[in-house]
Each structure stands twice: as C-alpha cells, then as structure tokens.
Amino acid sequence: MQKSITYLSSLATVVVLGVALSSCKDDDPPVKPKVSVSAATMTVKESDGTIEVEVSLDKPAPKDISIEYTLDGTAVDKATISGNQAYDYEITEDPGEINIDKGQSKGVIKIDLLSDSFIEDPETIEIQLESATEGIELTRDDEVKITINQEDGLIVALYWPAPTSTAYADMDLLVRIGATVNNWEADIFNGSVQETNSGPEFVFFPKAWGNAAYGMSYTYYDGTLDPLNFTVRFIDLVNGAIEPEAGFQVFTGSYTAANKNKWTDLSTTQVVQTFVTSGGAYSNISPITKPTAGSRMSTARDSKGTMARGSNNYHHGSLVKKLSLK
C-alpha cells in the first residue's frame, strides 16, 4: 500500500512539473524577425536609371514595420544640394525610411541615378541600416556599398596649337540639339568655354541621351594665329575606358583672322559640324564647314543662352587627364 501511495505521489509530481514547464515555454517571448540587406555590394553605371536595394526579413513581418537608414559616400544626393548644383542620385520615395507591410518580408530603397555630361571617376553610395520598429532585430548584414561607374558615351574634343611667344588662340566648343540637323532648339544645350590658349575643350554625350541631332560650334574666340588650324576628335568611352587612339574619328578645320568671334551673344556662333544619334549610336558625322567671315549666324531659333566664359561641363578625374594629352 505504501508503494502505491509513493508511486501516485511521484506521478503527481511529474504531472505538475510538466505543466509548469509547459507554462514556462508558453511564456517565452517570440523570436524576433531579423532584417538584413540582400547584398553587401553593388556595381552599377550612371545610365542604369532606377536601381533597387533590397532589404529582407527572415520571416514575414508580424505587423507594419519601418526601418531607418542613413546615406554616405562620395556620390552627391540631390537632397543635400542647393540651387543648380550638380548631383548624382535622388531618392524620392520616403527618403531615409523603408516600410514593410504586415505579412511581407521584403522592402526596397529605390534610387534614381542621374545620367549627365560629366566625366568622372567611380563614386559610391553607402547605406547603413540604423534602427527598426520595436520587435525587429538588425543583423550584422546592415550596410551596402554601391559603386557608380562612368556611363558609356561619346567624347568630342577640340584641339588647336599651343601658344608661342608670338602667337596664340582661344577656342570655344558649343553644342546645340534639334529634331534634325537643320532645325536647332533656341538655347545652347551644352559646351566648354574655358579661358585657355592651349585646350582642349571637350564635351561628353552619354549613350543614354535621346536627342536626335547635335550641332557643334568650334568658335575662334580670340587670338593672333592666322591661319588657325584645329582638330576635332570623336572618341568612344566604354566601360570607363577611352578607346585606343587608332579608333578615334578625326576631323580638321582651318580659320583665318576674319573668323574670330569674341561673342557676347551666343546666337552669333555658328554650327559647323553635325551628327545624329539613334539607339545610343552616334553616326552621320559631317565634315567641318568653314563659316563666313565673323563666324556669325542669325536665325529665328537662336538666342543668347546662358553659358558664361570660363565655364566647362565636366569634372576632373583620371579619364579627363588622358584627354589633355595631344
């Protein structure tokens, strides 16, 4: 009889202990969903348009959540500039915050990259996840570094003789755009008008741009060279590298003192060479024509524009230095 009582007592103890353990297990806090970036590094080109950085949870969100992040790196965010300063990218949807709806496990940061006429060394965007809604855990995979490489395109470079003790020249390169090579828009589109007697002046045309036709003005701004013989080189820039010199398309032109145009009104500059573009390919490059005396033109579609002497349209980098070698 005593053995039976002891057995029943032991069994009761086991049952009570089991219930207690089960109760403790039920009271344990749920495992927090963990958030991380899907890739630690990304490499893109300026011409890639809108890119997405994916942020993931290891299980569906138990509620609507938000994740805060910060931005750093050498690329310029549009939100940090003022006026007409140049920038490299823009985030228009909830900058600094990622939202993931209940039941979902992924969110994205959409970044709009700017295709521009600058020639630049690689730049970076660095994204750091900083905090998340209560109940969400950040992991060590909380940052991503995006490298933005130079986009592909065409460089047009204008060269002329270096100054001597007795003679010099200063030239400008201006660009118009239009629907055809005979119909230019009113304003100057782009250009390089440094105050220099040695050159080169050059502009960059990204493949991503969709303008149909371009008109080039090579203006003899000032100097004593007569004649002024100059060279224009069309150079492909692909995957961050300038093509071998053997691939350059080279055109020559010659002005006299009668062609000098110390312009104050851009409408007095004349288109002397044209080319067209389709699907990112540039073609039908015309020979350089010699303008009439004074290099002047006057049509209803020309205006003063806004370019000032001493300005150019590119950043200095390792690629730019290569173009300075004649």
Results as ranks from 00 to 15, higher is better:
residue 74 T to K: 08
residue 227 P to G: 07
residue 4 S to K: 12
residue 74 T to E: 02
residue 272 V to A: 12
residue 212 A to I: 07
residue 60 P to T: 03
residue 41 T to S: 15
residue 118 F to L: 14
residue 40 A to V: 07
residue 57 L to Q: 01
residue 307 M to G: 01
residue 266 L to C: 08
residue 25 K to N: 11
residue 114 L to P: 02
residue 176 R to A: 11
residue 97 E to M: 11
residue 83 G to N: 06
residue 118 F to P: 04
residue 305 G to N: 05
residue 111 I to Q: 07
residue 295 S to N: 14
residue 259 N to V: 10
residue 89 Y to N: 02
residue 306 T to D: 09
residue 323 L to V: 04
residue 77 D to H: 10
residue 267 S to M: 09
residue 316 H to V: 15
residue 273 Q to C: 13
residue 145 K to Y: 03
residue 254 S to H: 07
residue 84 N to Y: 13
residue 41 T to I: 09
residue 307 M to A: 10
residue 144 V to C: 13
residue 183 N to R: 10
residue 230 F to L: 07
residue 63 K to Y: 09
residue 274 T to M: 04
residue 257 A to Y: 07
residue 103 G to Y: 03
residue 127 I to C: 06
residue 19 V to Q: 09
residue 108 V to W: 01
residue 96 G to V: 09
residue 283 S to C: 05
residue 196 T to N: 13
residue 149 N to T: 12
residue 132 A to V: 03
residue 22 S to M: 00
residue 13 T to K: 11
residue 217 S to E: 06
residue 155 I to H: 01
residue 210 G to D: 11
residue 22 S to A: 11
residue 132 A to S: 08
residue 220 Y to A: 01
residue 306 T to P: 00
residue 124 T to L: 02
residue 37 V to M: 06
residue 49 G to D: 07
residue 51 I to V: 07
residue 274 T to Q: 07
residue 37 V to C: 02
residue 113 L to I: 08
residue 170 D to N: 13
residue 112 D to H: 13
residue 121 D to Y: 06
residue 63 K to Q: 12
residue 207 K to F: 05
residue 127 I to A: 08
residue 78 K to F: 00
residue 67 I to Y: 09
residue 276 V to D: 12
residue 175 V to S: 03
residue 230 F to Q: 08
residue 151 E to C: 13
residue 258 A to P: 05
residue 164 T to M: 03
residue 62 P to T: 02
residue 238 V to R: 14
residue 37 V to Y: 03
residue 74 T to F: 02
residue 29 P to K: 13
residue 141 D to L: 14
residue 166 T to I: 11
residue 132 A to D: 06
residue 268 T to A: 09
residue 77 D to N: 15
residue 313 N to P: 04
residue 205 F to V: 04
residue 169 A to D: 05
residue 282 Y to L: 08
residue 26 D to V: 00
residue 88 D to V: 05
residue 261 N to H: 05
residue 96 G to T: 10
residue 21 L to V: 11
residue 245 E to A: 15
residue 146 I to Q: 05
residue 148 I to Q: 01
residue 27 D to T: 00
residue 279 G to N: 09
residue 219 T to C: 13
